[in-house]
Simulated scan of single mutants.
Amino acid sequence: MQVGLHALGIGNGARPRIIRAVAEAAEAHGFATLWAGEHIVMVDTPSSRYPYSADGRIAVPADADWLDPLLALTFAAAVTTRIGLATGILLLPEHNPVAVAKQAATLDVLSAGRLTLGVGVGWSAEEFAALGVPFAHRGRRTAEYVAVLRTLWDRDVASFEGEFTRFEGIRVNPKPVRDRRIPVVVGGNSDAALRRVAAFGDGWYGFNLPAEAVGERVRALREYRASHHRPATEPTVAVALSDGGPGQLPALADAGVTELVVVGAPPDTPDAATAWVAELADRWITPPG
């Protein structure tokens, strides 16, 4: 099982010198992937419930710096050569999918095929309202937009007609490095999220999930995939835990987790950030015992 690091793009992790230090150290110490999430808009007093905490509130302050994940990962790509790069997650229905197709393929080319595009439907009605995007039917919009991305990546001249997107005979270049595909993983812990993974995802990103819940969620995902008659190959399963430690790694691997994602906020100097990554690697990648 691989170990990834979700630490870029917010607060100290939004500062160029810290991004460089974390990215270089993560690659040197054997982390598999650098993850970066997204919120375009934050509000001081949201009425929407955050789905990944018991109290329904997001821990990130509304006034914190929060970088665009594709741009942050492009910066990280420029100072590394091997480590994977993943959005965890990009709020796909808030974007124009034609623009995302080009932006993601650009990063994939610049990183020599290292990008995984993690997408999700979003939870903040205030954010959708600020962007002028309907909050309703965002799940259907996400499914269609993934189909748009794959169409544009695969075809030299592409046309599409759906519920939310229509275009005729357009070219969007460059194309992704790996057979004109970028892996698309779907974020979220709910049954609805797992059904989306089963329907159109290449993998799943479960976030802030209790360790004891992981096995049941993976089993549910397999059942949903079987109902959709998906290929027998297993999807990638990346999970960030809300509790536990390295002692859970064998059980997570047995449950079908392919990547354990360590979530943390780096310290505020490059030297401290480098040491922080090394300490995480000592704990999670080569756990004691």
Rank of each mutant, 00 (worst) to 15 (best):
A112F: 01
T151A: 05
G88A: 15
E168H: 13
F128G: 05
R155Y: 10
H137F: 00
A158C: 00
R141C: 00
W153Y: 09
R114Y: 05
D154A: 12
V146H: 04
A99E: 14
E94G: 05
T87V: 07
A130N: 02
G132W: 03
G113P: 00
A105N: 08
V121P: 06
T106V: 08
L149K: 08
V98L: 15
H95W: 12
T151K: 15
A112H: 03
E161H: 09
S124D: 04
E127D: 01
S111E: 02
A99I: 15
L107P: 03
E126K: 08
D156E: 15
I83H: 08
R82F: 07
L152N: 01
Q103W: 14
L131Y: 01
V146A: 00
A130V: 06
A136V: 06
Q103H: 06
E161P: 00
V119Y: 05
R82V: 11
E161W: 00
R82G: 15
A104E: 15
K102H: 09
I170D: 04
K102Q: 13
V148I: 15
R82Y: 03
V98R: 14
G120R: 04
L152S: 02
A158E: 04
G122L: 03
L117W: 10
T106F: 12
G84A: 04
A136H: 14
L131E: 02
W153E: 11
L115Y: 13
A86F: 04
A125D: 14
E127I: 00
V119N: 12
G132L: 03
A112E: 08
